[in-house]
Nucleic acid binder design. Structure first.
Length: 567
RNA sequence: UGUCCGGUUGUGUAAAGGUAGCACAGGAGAUUUUGGUUCUCUUAGUCAGGGUUCGAAUCCUUGCCGGACAACCA
């Protein structure tokens, strides 16, 4: 899937991997993992991480595990597990039989914790939450040690066991690593390893009432699975010393965690302009009914992009091309759209659809006559063949494609003007009707030149413009949903004083109740991609029924005419 | 006033002491039975100061700016 010749610069993670491989680390093996927490739906940022992790393994002959980071039963649910798996599969990646859960390792983790306690490197703290918080201090000042910090090993062991047995209420005690309350790195100020949570876990049921924290579970899970490169986002950078500390301590009594020894590498998360990416904000949009659901085509969720008609290969390509680095970034939405168009241009069959119809009557074309014209499916892909499109005396064309009083650079229809009907004939406009009240054009009249039929044109005529059309008696009425960016501001979440929802774009969804498309679309399958010629890419919405087809606009075509008009 | 990370055209991302390149976006043109695609050409950049060096985006230093860290979230 990935890139070829000119793209030989490596990102910094590839460089690290190559160095490790060259130095013979981990016996030349690379193993990565994608570690989602099953508490929400995946979005384009996750897609980048998925592509990075799976892509790296593919590139260097390694494997990638799927590991659910299910250490917090309060927020997690199986519902998310299934959805996440579907999304990864849809993106085109395969974890084979390596579907793991941090909860698979709860027992092992507990054993490790017990040993740490025995080694005097962890202790049970009875302090209430607020007290622990207070004693942790602030980044600029050292914290203070807990009065329970120097309990005997025996007492710690006993307490830890009773925590596990469920003797204590939630919040009563925690197990903490004994590191350094004065560390300038807050993560090292005796971080919590276990908290008491009397909650049912979606996999382990009621087997546990103490649950490991992220820091305690993650690195050890990596080690247990033999992960060599544990890739995460920048905010975990300050956790790395802790990640390494746990491994070092456990390594003193279980050398297996050190071979291979997992290494944490952080990269900058993906940000996209004109949208929001945080789980919390996405949830707010869904629950507040600002969008129709997690699969709303305006959302940057994988579910949403898929329904929008974005392709997996387009997204993969995007993820690869945005690069990997450590500096904060905001990717132009237009770059994503470019990647999607690029893919669709090569693969999407062309069809004709009129979104804003006006009737065109070819006065010299026999009434009741029908011609079946053969039109190529995709000029970019000769192998895609052609299809039959009915033509007749009465057609629909786009309102936009006629102007009563056209400017000089206008290549479409005007009174007395000529234009080619795509795949059909050259016509000359002879007359038109206008609604006197609204000024709207209601009917256009034209004559056609029978010698100008596409493919067998003997007229020698040349016209500047070609427009699309749909035969009126054969047209299929459909609903079309046009989408625009969800927010009007490039960084809706970037205003400290204002709620991001303030920047919601009221025009982000525009429903056309009745557009007309060529009859071949009757056969369209849900989510199938098409190019509506001269308009954009569309896919069939899964909500469509036999007698009501709905098309989602994936992305418009580049429109240089619109740009010219703006000037 | 702490620690860590970062700062290259508008946006991304390369250049590992030796010509600042590529992509998107912007602009100009050619081709075109999609004002699409494709193809040319083009505008625009090393945060600032000092130092090392024949030579600095790169190394050192000072400063400035941005981000992360103070959940029993991940």
């Amino acid at each position: 899937m990935s890139e070829n010749e000119e793209n030989n610069h490596k990102n910094f993670i590839e460089e690290i991997v190559e160095q490790d491989l060259a130095q013979g680390k981990n016996e030349g093996v690379i193993q990565t993992r994608f570690p989602p927490e099953p508490n929400g739906y995946l979005h384009i940022g996750h897609a980048k991480s998925i592509c990075l992790n799976f892509g790296l393994a593919l590139e260097y002959g390694g494997k990638t595990n799927l590991r659910f980071d299910d250490t917090n039963p309060v927020t997690e649910d199986v519902e998310y597990v299934e959805s996440i798996k579907n999304d990864i599969r849809w993106l085109g990646f395969d974890w084979e039989d390596r579907e793991f859960y941090a909860s698979d390792y709860f027992e092992k983790l507990y054993e490790y914790a017990v040993q740490l306690v025995k080694d005097g490197k962890a202790y049970v703290d009875d302090s209430p939450l607020e007290e622990i918080r207070r004693m942790r201090g602030v980044p600029t000042e050292p914290g203070e040690e807990s009065p329970y910090r120097d309990r005997s090993v025996e007492e710690n062991l006993d307490l830890l066991e009773r925590m596990r047995e469920g003797e204590f209420p939630e919040g009563a005690r925690v197990l903490r690593a004994k590191i350094d309350m004065a560390s300038p790195n807050m993560q090292l100020r005796d971080p919590v390893m276990y908290r008491i949570l009397h909650k049912e876990h979606h996999r382990t049921g009621d087997a546990w009432c103490i649950y490991p924290t992220y820091d305690w579970a993650h690195g050890q899970s990596d080690a247990i699975e033999g992960i060599t490169h544990s890739i995460c986002t920048l905010e975990f950078e300050v956790h790395r010393p802790l990640y390494d500390w746990f491994l070092d301590q456990i390594g003193t009594f279980d050398a297996s965690v050190l071979q291979p020894r997992p290494r944490q590498i952080e990269f900058a998360r993906l940000n996209l302009s004109y949208t929001v990416m945080s789980k919390r904000k996405l949830l707010e949009l869904v629950e507040g009914d600002f969008v129709s659901g997690w699969d709303d085509p305006r959302l940057p969720t994988i579910l949403g992009m898929r329904r929008r008609g974005y392709t997996a290969s387009g997204i993969r390509n995007f993820a690869e091309r945005v690069g990997v680095a450590k500096r904060d970034n905001v990717i132009d939405l237009s770059f994503l759209e470019y990647c999607i168009r690029e893919d669709l241009n090569k693969t999407a069959p062309r069809v004709m659809g009129v979104l804003d119809p006006v009737k065109l009557i070819i006065t010299n074309y026999p009434e009741g006559q029908r011609e079946d014209l053969s039109i190529e499916n995709n000029p970019e892909d000769p192998a895609s063949g052609s299809r039959s499109v009915p033509f007749s005396r009465e057609l629909y064309i786009e309102q936009d494609d006629f102007m009563e009083d056209p400017p000089k650079k206008y290549f479409r229809l005007g009174p007395g003007g000529e234009v080619r009907l795509k795949g059909a004939y050259i016509i000359t406009c002879t007359d038109f009707k206008k609604d006197p009240d609204t000024g709207k054009i209601t009917e256009i009249y034209a004559t056609y030149d029978p010698h100008t039929k596409s493919g067998e044109d003997t007229s020698g005529k040349k016209v500047k413009g070609t427009i699309h059309w749909v035969s009126l008696p054969h047209a299929l009425p459909v609903e079309v949903r046009l989408y625009d960016r969800l927010f009007t501001d490039p960084d809706p979440a970037g205003h400290k004083d204002q709620d991001f929802k303030r920047f919601l774009n009221p025009e982000s969804l525009n429903v056309i109740e009745k557009a007309y498309v060529e009859p071949s679309l009757k056969q369209a399958k849900p989510l199938e991609n098409f190019q509506f010629m001269r308009k954009g890419y569309y896919c069939l919405d899964p909500d469509s029924t036999e007698d009501r087809l709905i098309f989602n606009q994936t992305v418009t075509l580049r429109d240089t005419w619109a740009k010219i008009q703006q000037k």
